[in-house]
C-alpha cells in the first residue's frame, strides 16, 4: 500500500510547528518535526478526525450587554462547528450569569457542554 506524506501545522500553541506525517491507509506511521507530546497527540487526532475549540456568543436579557460569550468545555468535531453555532443561535439566557455556568448541556449529543466565559451582572445590580 502506498505511503502518503502530509504537512500539518500544529495549532496547539503559538509556536505552530510544521509537522511531517507519513500515513499508510490512514494510519500514522511516523510524525517528524514536532517535539512535544501535546503536539503529537494533536497531529494524530488531526489526521483521523479534526477537532476544534468552539466559541460564540448567545443573546442575553436583563444585562447591560446584548451578548454573553460562551465556549465548549472540550474541542468539538471540526465538521460540526457550524451546527453548534446554529444551535446556540436559538438560545436566549437571562442575567445574572456566572463564569462557568452551563448554557447548553451535551450539545448535539457530543457529550460536551457549552459554558459561559464571563460573569454578567443583572442590569442596575451592583
Amino acid at each position: 500500500m502506498k505511503v502518503e506524506t502530509r504537512e500539518i501545522t500544529c495549532i496547539i500553541c503559538p509556536v505552530g510547528c510544521r509537522a511531517r506525517v507519513s500515513l499508510r491507509n490512514g494510519e500514522v506511521l511516523e510524525i517528524q518535526n514536532i517535539e512535544c507530546p501535546r503536539g503529537e497527540k494533536y497531529i494524530s487526532q488531526e489526521v483521523k478526525a479534526p477537532m476544534r475549540d468552539f466559541f460564540t456568543t448567545v443573546r442575553i436579557a436583563n444585562a447591560q450587554t446584548q451578548v454573553l460569550p460562551v465556549r465548549s468545555t472540550e474541542p468539538v468535531p471540526k465538521a460540526r462547528l457550524k451546527e453548534c453555532a446554529l444551535e446556540l443561535a436559538k438560545i436566549r439566557v437571562e442575567a445574572p450569569v456566572r463564569l462557568g455556568d452551563v448554557i447548553v448541556e451535551n450539545i448535539l449529543g457530543l457529550g460536551i457542554d457549552i459554558v459561559a466565559t464571563r460573569d454578567i451582572a443583572q442590569q442596575n445590580a451592583r
Partner: peptide, 22 residues
C-alpha cells in the same frame, strides 16, 4: 476576544479572552 488560545504560558491553560482577564 471570545476565542481560545490565551494563557497557555501565563496560566498553563487554554483560555478565552474573557476567562483570562477574569
Amino acid at each position: 476576544c471570545i476565542h481560545t488560545g490565551f494563557g497557555l504560558h501565563y496560566f498553563s491553560e487554554n483560555l478565552t479572552g474573557p476567562e483570562y482577564i477574569s
